[in-house]
Computed example of a mutant assay.
Amino acid sequence: MSARSNALPPVVDRATWEKDLAALRVREKAATRELDAIAAQRRRLPMVEMPDYVLEGEDGPVRLVDIFGDHPQLIVYSHMWQEDAEWQCPGCTGFTSQFTRLAGLEKFDARFVIVTQGPIDEALAYQRKVGNTMTWYSTSDSTFGSDIGAPPNGGFAVNVFLRDSNGTVYRTWHTSGRGTEQLSYLFGLVDLLPYGRQEEWQDSPEGWPQSPTYSRWATPQEIAAAYGDSDR
């Protein structure tokens, strides 16, 4: 069933609508306060010291400590990579395509980059093909990816690192799976819609449009057609 079906929420008068919205707002505000409390706990997490890894960037080998640039904080998205695949993970490709203007992070003393297990020349070619604007690095000749939860032919991950004044790098936070959703503006917008994500696992009213999980996600080919290098 498509979103253009006849499934509709009940129609009520304005007073009833405002009453129900106010009841929902109580839960929304409670969730906001809980997210604030979670962030406060995250800021109090201990951290673990990292070795002096060397990755590959567009201009050659680069130490992990130097990927921070002028900033003490670094977010790393580990992009899934399948050897010899023409199109890489659609979830990773779609997720990272959302981040096109990251200069605002500099105001908060941080960078956000992609690290993948693919060889750097192949990774950069894929970056151009799908029009990704983030900075990419390769860990194909390093254990860095495996050590942060993203081994070869493995899953994706988000990790956060802190560099101290002596140049020592520490790992402060990690997540994977649906833990990455908090970074996606797409799902935040979609979850506001009456029909939501329209995926079968979601709790929706009877008759609401629903389809298999992932089936509405943009494919790498669609992302490449929309944003990719026209000269590819």
Rank of each mutant, 00 (worst) to 15 (best):
G149I: 08
G154S: 12
A110E: 01
W136I: 00
Y126A: 06
G167I: 08
V169D: 10
P152T: 08
L162C: 09
S140I: 00
S165A: 14
G131A: 06
W173P: 00
F161N: 00
V115M: 07
R171K: 11
D141T: 14
T172A: 08
S146D: 10
S140T: 02
T168L: 13
G149W: 04
K107F: 09
H174V: 08
A157F: 04
Q117Y: 15
M134I: 05
A123R: 05
K129W: 05
M134D: 00
H174P: 05
D147L: 00
E122F: 09
D147M: 00
Q127D: 09
V158N: 10
F156Q: 13
T143W: 03
N166H: 13
L105Y: 14
I148Q: 04
D141C: 12
S146Y: 05
N166L: 14
N166D: 15
F156W: 14
T139I: 03
G104D: 12
K107H: 11
Y170A: 08
I114G: 01
E122G: 14
V130E: 04
I114Y: 11
S138D: 07
T116D: 03
N166G: 13
D121G: 10
W136Y: 14
S146A: 13
V160M: 15
F112S: 10
I120H: 02
V130Y: 02
D121W: 08
G131D: 01
Y126F: 15
P119Y: 05
D147E: 02
S140V: 02
T133F: 10
T143I: 04
G167T: 08
Y170P: 01
R111A: 09
F108P: 03
T139L: 08
D109H: 13
N159T: 15
A110Y: 07
T172V: 11
N166S: 15
I148F: 15
N159F: 05
G155D: 01
V113H: 05
M134F: 06
P119H: 11
S142F: 04
K129H: 10
G145S: 11
A123T: 03
K129Q: 12
S165W: 11
L105E: 01
A150D: 08
F108E: 15
T139G: 15
H174K: 10
T172I: 09
K129V: 02
F144D: 00
G154W: 09
A150V: 06
S142H: 01
T168K: 15
V130W: 02
Y137D: 03
F108A: 14
S140W: 01
I114M: 15
A110S: 15
Y137S: 02
D121Y: 09
T116E: 11
F161H: 03
F161I: 00
T135D: 15
R163M: 12
D109E: 12
V158W: 09
S140L: 01
G104C: 06
G155Q: 02
I114P: 07
D164T: 05
A157N: 07
N132G: 10
S146K: 09
N166Q: 14
W136S: 00
G155I: 02
G154T: 07
Q117K: 11
V158S: 07
I120R: 03
A110P: 03
L162Y: 15
S146I: 03
F108L: 15
G155W: 04
W173E: 11
V113I: 12
N153S: 12
Y137N: 01
G104E: 10
P151M: 07
A157P: 03
F161K: 00
F144L: 05
T116G: 04
D164E: 08
G167E: 12
P119N: 09
T143M: 05
G149D: 05
